[in-house]
Computed example of a mutant assay.
Amino acid sequence: MDPEDGSGWADVSDRSHRIDDEMDRIVERLRDLAHTQRRFQDLLDAVMSVGRDLELPVVLRRVITTAMGLVDARYGALGVLS
Results as ranks from 00 to 15, higher is better:
S13D: 14
D14Y: 11
D14K: 12
D14H: 11
D14P: 01
R15C: 03
R15H: 09
R18V: 05
R18H: 13
I19V: 14
I19M: 03
I19K: 02
I19T: 08
D20M: 01
D21S: 10
E22T: 11
M23V: 13
M23H: 06
D24L: 05
D24T: 10
D24N: 14
I26Q: 02
I26R: 03
I26F: 06
V27S: 11
L30P: 04
L30G: 06
L30W: 10
D32L: 07
D32V: 13
L33D: 10
A34F: 05
H35D: 15
H35W: 06
H35Y: 10
T36H: 09
R38P: 12
R38Y: 14
Q41Y: 13
Q41L: 10
D42I: 01
D42H: 14
L43W: 03
L43K: 03
L43D: 00
L43G: 08
L44S: 14
D45E: 09
A46I: 02
A46P: 01
V47L: 10
M48V: 11
M48R: 13
S49V: 04
V50Q: 02
G51M: 00
R52V: 06
R52S: 09
D53N: 10
E55S: 09
L56W: 06
P57Y: 02
V58F: 04
V59T: 09
V59Q: 05
V59A: 11
V59W: 01
V59I: 15
L60V: 07
R62W: 00
R62D: 06
R62G: 03
V63T: 04
I64G: 01
I64T: 15
I64K: 13
T65I: 09
T66Q: 07
A67Q: 03
M68A: 08
M68G: 04
M68K: 14
G69W: 02
G69T: 01
L70R: 04
L70A: 07
V71M: 03
D72Y: 06
R74G: 07
R74Y: 05
Y75M: 14
Y75G: 06
Y75S: 15
G76V: 00
A77K: 07
L78F: 05
V80R: 06
L81G: 08
L81M: 11
S82K: 09
S82I: 08
